[in-house]
Amino acid sequence: MELINFKVGCKTISLKILDILLTERFDNNLTTLPNNNKSFIGVKDYMDIPTPVFDLGIILNNISTEQSNKHILKQLRSWQDKQSKWFNTLETNLLNRSEKLVINETELQDFIVFFQEFNTDNPDLKLTISRFNEPFELLLEQARQAVSAHRQGEHKQVSYLLSKIKRSSLAQLERLFESAQEQITLDYKPIIVFTTKDGINPHVGLLVDKVEDSLDYKKEDIKPLDKLTDIGFDIDPQTKGMMRGLIKMAKNHSVLIDPSSIFKPTELQVETENTEAYGLF
């Protein structure tokens, strides 16, 4: 059986190639309709057939990748602003020769935790975030040197160190902040996967982040979800109804999805699960 893998946030999902009519870039040009389903994002014509489109990120992750990206961007901009204010305050106190000068590093400790624990499947963004540590530690060390020089009354040395910080560690951190934000913004190019139940007419469109690869799998490669869902996993019935199994990959698993079961009434999902209607093999 030939499958195509797609990325949805941090998850990988698989669809049978026969369930796919077409993939196209999402240009945010859907027709919106009043509804109470937060994953429904609008209607798109496929060969003049109005087709509902759902955000698979919301279905599987409870949050769209777009919203997740906005949250990360907000965090980065917040830390960039906080770091700038921190240094400006330090610089003002040093240049004004404040007698009660204390370098408050605790204000930035949460940022250390943020970039050390930051996780992403984007290799370029992951590399950028990993580069924060060195200039950040250098910034703190140079700030300590400037404070020490201030306490010893070496005011020319203080001015020299402040200038050095701006040219080196602070400038490098600013470039990393801008690079990370740019990668998050430019890397997000979602696509709509138009699915089908009969090979001709569209069923639903699914918004995913990107196409991964196409692979052939055998029956023994697909592991059932029964043991996982029977031990207390709280999976939404609609989501559970469309999941058909796990496929072992190099480092993780892909979730095999039956798009024909998305938003199907529960009683019909049970019927599908107990038969071979999906035609896996």
Results as ranks from 00 to 15, higher is better:
residue 6 F to L: 07
residue 6 F to T: 03
residue 10 C to G: 15
residue 14 S to F: 03
residue 16 K to A: 02
residue 19 D to G: 05
residue 26 F to A: 01
residue 30 L to G: 04
residue 30 L to I: 14
residue 39 S to R: 08
residue 43 V to S: 05
residue 48 D to R: 08
residue 57 G to K: 02
residue 58 I to L: 12
residue 60 L to I: 12
residue 66 E to M: 04
residue 74 K to S: 09
residue 76 L to N: 03
residue 76 L to D: 06
residue 79 W to P: 12
residue 87 F to Y: 05
residue 89 T to Q: 14
residue 92 T to E: 15
residue 93 N to P: 01
residue 93 N to C: 07
residue 95 L to R: 08
residue 106 T to R: 11
residue 106 T to Y: 13
residue 114 F to L: 12
residue 115 F to A: 12
residue 121 D to T: 10
residue 125 L to Q: 06
residue 130 S to D: 14
residue 131 R to H: 09
residue 131 R to Y: 08
residue 145 Q to F: 14
residue 146 A to R: 12
residue 150 H to E: 03
residue 150 H to W: 09
residue 152 Q to G: 13
residue 154 E to V: 11
residue 156 K to F: 15
residue 158 V to P: 02
residue 167 R to D: 07
residue 167 R to A: 06
residue 170 L to K: 14
residue 170 L to Q: 11
residue 172 Q to H: 14
residue 172 Q to Y: 13
residue 173 L to N: 02
residue 173 L to T: 00
residue 173 L to K: 03
residue 177 F to C: 13
residue 178 E to S: 15
residue 181 Q to C: 13
residue 183 Q to P: 07
residue 193 V to S: 08
residue 195 T to I: 03
residue 197 K to F: 01
residue 198 D to R: 05
residue 203 H to P: 10
residue 203 H to Q: 08
residue 206 L to Q: 02
residue 214 S to T: 15
residue 215 L to K: 00
residue 216 D to L: 13
residue 216 D to G: 01
residue 216 D to P: 03
residue 218 K to H: 14
residue 219 K to A: 07
residue 225 L to Y: 04
residue 225 L to S: 09
residue 230 D to H: 04
residue 231 I to R: 06
residue 247 I to E: 06
residue 254 S to P: 01
residue 256 L to S: 03
residue 257 I to Q: 12
residue 260 S to C: 05
residue 263 F to I: 06
residue 263 F to M: 10
residue 269 Q to M: 13
residue 270 V to D: 02
residue 272 T to W: 09
residue 275 T to V: 11
residue 280 L to T: 10
